[in-house]
Amino acid sequence: MTKVLVLYYSSYGHIETLAQAVADGVRRAGALAVVKRVPELVPESVAEKAGYKLNQPAHIATVAELPEYDAIVIGTPTRFGNMASQVKNFLDQCGGLWFEDKLVGKVGSVFTSTGSQHGGQESTILATHTVLLHLGMVIVGLPYSFKGQLRMDAITGGSPYGASTLADDGSGGDRQPSDNELEGARFQGWHVAHVAAALAASPVGVPQ
């Protein structure tokens, strides 16, 4: 069975919600979805004061386990148009896997959240793609066959690069992922699982 890791970081729960939707899409494709998160770097006292969601049930992932999966879907909030430092810190520990080509040919995909419509959703995903490409992974996004990203009747996240959500309601208040954004995340998970299954059936080798 195709095995997909949904690996995320979430301060306030928005990415966590999208991660569960991605995992649901993976399961709809008949694959095994494992949801884990990267370690928190912020001291607990600071996180509590900032209102971080600290009761997330997902287990902490390790770098060593990454080669066990056929695909890795990374969820990260945006930090000034780039991935969160917690995610970058985790990926920066993949040097050994890079050296041994352990992730070459695996599927890599990314989803994100921002506080506004133009807060760096696309740049964050593309910046994360750069790391995945250095690791030799095969990038999969959110194709236009998910028609929800073409909607003009409502504010919504989502692009061909990956699913996304807006975390601010425009007045500084909390906004949860919309039904359309969640459906985009499910579609991405479903699509990743199908691509990973196809690649697993014909693994990437080394040219002779």
Rank of each mutant, 00 (worst) to 15 (best):
D101F: 10
V34E: 03
V107G: 11
D179R: 13
P39R: 09
D92R: 13
K53F: 11
A71E: 04
V104N: 08
A193W: 10
P177M: 08
L54S: 08
T62M: 15
H134S: 06
F80I: 04
G119C: 12
S178Q: 14
A84H: 11
T128G: 05
G136M: 07
A19K: 12
S113N: 10
H129M: 12
P177G: 01
N180E: 07
P177S: 01
G173I: 08
F187E: 06
P160I: 00
I74A: 09
Y12C: 00
F80P: 07
M1T: 13
I15L: 09
P43Q: 00
P207V: 04
V73M: 02
S11A: 11
V35W: 01
F80K: 09
A200E: 10
A197D: 04
M152T: 14
I60M: 15
P177Y: 05
I155Y: 11
I125Y: 06
T114I: 02
A31C: 05
V140N: 01
L142E: 03
A23C: 11
T2Y: 04
L199C: 01
Y144T: 12
P203Q: 01
V6H: 02
Q117R: 10
I60C: 14
Y69K: 14
S116F: 09
V63I: 11
T165M: 05
V63G: 07
G75Q: 08
A154I: 06
K147Y: 03
V4H: 10
S145M: 01
Y144K: 14
L54Y: 06
E65D: 14
F111S: 11
Q149S: 10
G170R: 07
G158W: 03
V34D: 00
V63F: 09
V192Y: 09
V107Q: 10
V63D: 05
L135H: 13
L142S: 08
G96A: 02
L54M: 06
E16A: 14
A33S: 08
P67F: 08
E16L: 10
P39V: 03
K53C: 09
E100N: 14
D24M: 10
T165W: 04
S164T: 06
F90E: 03
R79I: 01
I155N: 13
V42S: 05
Q86Y: 06
E100R: 15
D153C: 03
V26K: 02
P67H: 03
D179P: 12
A84D: 05
G162F: 05
T17S: 07
D101L: 03
I15N: 13
D101A: 11
A198R: 15
G115L: 04
A21G: 12
A58P: 14
L166V: 15
D92F: 01
A29G: 07
G136D: 04
E183I: 00
A167D: 02
S45K: 15
Q188H: 03
P143Y: 01
L126N: 05
H118M: 04
E183T: 12
D174V: 12
Q208G: 15
D174T: 12
E65I: 14
R186H: 03
E44Q: 03
T130M: 14
L103R: 12
Q117C: 01
A167W: 06
T62S: 15
L91T: 06
E68P: 00
A200R: 15
Y8A: 08
G119R: 09
G108K: 06
A31T: 08
V104W: 06
R186P: 09
A21R: 13
Q188K: 00
G105M: 04
L7H: 13
S11M: 07
I125G: 06
E16N: 12
S113R: 07
H59N: 13
L97G: 12
T112L: 08
A58E: 04
